[in-house]
Amino acid sequence: MNSSYTILATIIVLLFVFLYLSWVIVSNKIIDNENNKEIGKRRDFLFTASYALGAVGVGVSVWPLIDQMNPDASVKALATTEVDISKVEQGKTITVLWRGKPVFIRKRTKEEINEAQSVKLEELKDPQKDQERVKKAEWLVMVGVCTHLGCVPLGNKGDFNGWFCPCHGSHYDTSGRIRKGPAPTNLEIPRYEFVDNNTIKIG
């Protein structure tokens, strides 16, 4: 929604600039033809009013053409996904599709949780406490898209016992935080909630 408002605002601004220029040209022509600035000024108000109202109409007509490219109702209806996590074993990760992207859901072992919690914040490129990234310490829910250029990192790999992105060598730890490599930020935590102990709703 935000980006299209910016586009709309830009278009309206450009429209007003264009209309102002053409109004200058038109009113210049009339003044030149008549050499009578007085009459030109009185007529201007009617023209300005017409232009202004016309610009509103053009803006209103343009908006649907822009908005139709925004996610449509059927896409927005799939904005949330419910996942059954009852069968996920400790130390295993499942990958689900959410909004067209992979989401990793991992049931972490005690060792992984301890490792994640004991890392000093100064060592992190993108400092974040593990507790900030999870709702229940056992469950790690992250968008499986490398924050560098978008590849899907591989699980149970890398120097930090977490994930490793083969495209350009980013290493993520057991909390999904970037530790080594070109990725700028930690793996994204999507909006999610526990519907009950066995179900997570993402989005």
Binding site: P64, L65, D67, Q68, N70, D72, A73, S74, V75
Partner: peptide
């Protein structure tokens, strides 16, 4: 019909 029902302003266009 998807355009008419789901696409924003699809019915109008």
């Amino acid at each position: 019909e998807h355009i008419m029902r789901d696409v924003n302003y699809g019915w109008l266009i």
